[in-house]
Amino acid sequence: MVTTLIDTQQNTWSDVFSTKYGAIYQSDAERCWYVDFAGKVAKFDYRCLLKLKKAVYNVDIEAKLLQSTKDPDIEILFICACDHCYILSLLQIIALKDLLEGTFVMLQLNHILQDRLYRIAI
């Protein structure tokens, strides 16, 4: 996984969280996140990232695992008003959920740090 990517406008992406299967970066300049998962890097703003999280968390993984029907284990995550759509297997859903869980913990941690270290010091 790349640690820090530099784009053409010298825009730094900060690492938010990464796993064996993907990574999420934040661009302060563009006020958005880049989700590197399932073979593509997709840009999400605040609302869309929350929608992605909701869509992933809404998949009932346990129910899918217990399902004995023969249809394929494929989930289509379509996120309203966002440009991206994911077609994922159940294992990928689990991996994406992992990635998002870690990401939101890190964002929360960042919020606490900003609060306790910087905002109070100013």
Binding site: S14, V16, Q26, D28, R31, C32, W33, Y46, L107, N110, H111, Q114, D115
Partner: peptide
């Protein structure tokens, strides 16, 4: 890294 979520809400 900016606290982007706090900026929005």
């Amino acid at each position: 890294m900016k606290d982007l979520i706090r900026i929005r809400s």
